[in-house]
């Protein structure tokens, strides 16, 4: 059985709920009271993840942390089509991993800004927002040129990959951290496409439609 250590309002947890739903994989949610309980820093949770971070996946005792790592595991394990993470294609795999790392940078900036605004975290908010804008600018340009080549997704033409899933949540939640997406129209069109994926599910702050 799959267990997901989960917090409802976390974008990193949501990307796993979203992907599990797309793949139609059953799992149990183990809610962790991230706020205000700080349960991710509790003794019992640090035994599971010494970094004290969500999400964590436990598949029959095989324990994995980091949302991007978990996406690769889930895709390789449960996606029979091999389209979400084409393990046989070196180039695409390289590109996907490049953008998975980019997704973690989005967490470090756009998600941090949201924690500051929503949950009163102490951090350099101006730096977080400025750096998020720099990343969004890079992605918007990438997606604009992708569209010019009839490529709908971050790494691939027709079928999305886990790179799209990994980048999506904290981009959609960016306004909660005071980061407007007005200047990134290609990103907005891509988020429209992403929400058309069969079995797409929303979360608080992310709607089924709209940019």
């Amino acid at each position: 059985m799959i267990k997901l250590y989960d917090y409802e309002l976390s974008g990193n947890c949501y990307k796993l709920r979203l992907f599990l739903n797309i793949l139609n994989v059953d799992y149990d949610r183990i809610p962790v009271d991230f706020y205000p309980g700080r349960e991710h820093k509790s003794d019992w949770f640090l035994q599971i993840n010494p970094l004290g971070q969500l999400p964590v996946l436990d598949h029959d005792g095989f324990v994995l942390r980091d949302a991007q790592a978990i996406l690769t595991y889930l895709a390789a394990k449960f996606d029979a089509s091999h389209k979400w993470y084409p393990t046989g294609d070196a180039e695409i795999l390289g590109k996907i991993n490049m953008w998975l790392s980019f997704a973690d940078s989005i967490t470090a900036t756009a998600s941090a800004a949201r924690l500051h605004d929503g949950l009163f975290y102490q951090l350099d908010i101006e730096a977080a927002r400025t750096n998020a804008h720099s990343l969004f600018r890079v992605l918007d340009e990438h997606l604009w040129f992708a569209e010019e080549q009839r490529q709908a997704w971050i790494c691939t033409d027709k079928h999305p990959t886990i790179a799209d899933i990994a980048c999506f949540p904290y981009i959609m939640l960016s306004e909660e951290g005071g980061i407007s997406r007005m200047a990134y129209p290609a990103i907005c069109r891509w988020t429209d496409r992403l929400r058309e994926i069969p079995n797409f599910i929303a979360m608080s702050g992310i709607f089924e439609s709209g940019s």
């Binding site: 997406r181 007005m182 129209p185 907005c188 069109r189 429209d192």
Partner: peptide, 16 residues
């Protein structure tokens, strides 16, 4: 305000 071709089917473009 925006390139015509960027206003695709069922999209809503936000601008100022």
């Amino acid at each position: 305000v925006v390139r015509s071709q960027e206003i695709g089917l069922r999209h809503i473009h936000r601008s100022q």
